[in-house]
């Protein structure tokens, strides 16, 4: 894989944006509504969706991993690493698959990603706790993922629309 300078810069920018979004999520603690500590909305998936289309799966995965590791280091919380990694990677895998189908728009891909993100997080919670209790909240989380998915899809769509004709995308 050969990264152009432009692509590298874009990767770095997107990682920073993803980190900022992860931080932003702390202001909307989903755990108040769903009592599984560590569960996040998954707003950083916006970056994953964007990177997937704009840069490709490998770069998108790199951004994801950097975001997860840096996020955990900044927060000083290694518990969070498993949640964000499992959630993020599952979401990414599902979105890679879904984006192959050219029929789905960015909304469909995002919804699938959000659902996978929440499944991954429940799996992380089960692993961390050594108990299947969090499974009980999976249906609610799947329902929530419809909205977070639509939201990330909307924001990603706005981004693509805004950037489609800039030369940022022509690298």
């Amino acid at each position: 894989m050969k990264l152009t300078t432009k692509q590298l810069t874009l990767c770095a920018m997107l990682t920073a944006m993803a980190l900022a979004l992860s931080y932003l999520e702390n202001f909307f603690p989903l755990s108040l509504a769903i009592p599984i500590p560590g569960i996040k909305l998954g707003l950083a998936n916006i970056v994953t969706v964007f990177a997937l289309y704009a840069l490709g799966p490998v770069q998108a995965l790199l951004i994801l991993l950097s975001r997860c590791v840096l996020g955990a280091v900044f927060a000083g919380n290694m518990n969070a690493l498993l949640f964000s990694l499992l959630g993020g990677v599952t979401a990414m895998l599902v979105m890679i698959l879904l984006s192959r189908s050219r029929r789905l728009s960015v909304y469909g891909v995002s919804v699938g990603g959000a659902a996978a993100h929440n499944c991954g997080q429940v799996a992380a919670a089960i692993l961390t706790l050594g108990n299947t209790a969090p499974l009980y909240y999976l249906p609610v989380l799947l329902g929530v993922s419809l909205f977070t998915g639509a939201l990330t899809g909307l924001i990603a769509a706005c981004l693509f629309q805004a950037l489609a004709h800039t030369d940022l995308m022509k690298g």
Binding site: F28, L30, V144, F147, L154
Partner: peptide
Amino acid sequence: RWMAFVLAAVLTGGLT
């Protein structure tokens, strides 16, 4: 996007 977010939050509450 904020309206969508508020909607999501409200519906989340409803589901729980």
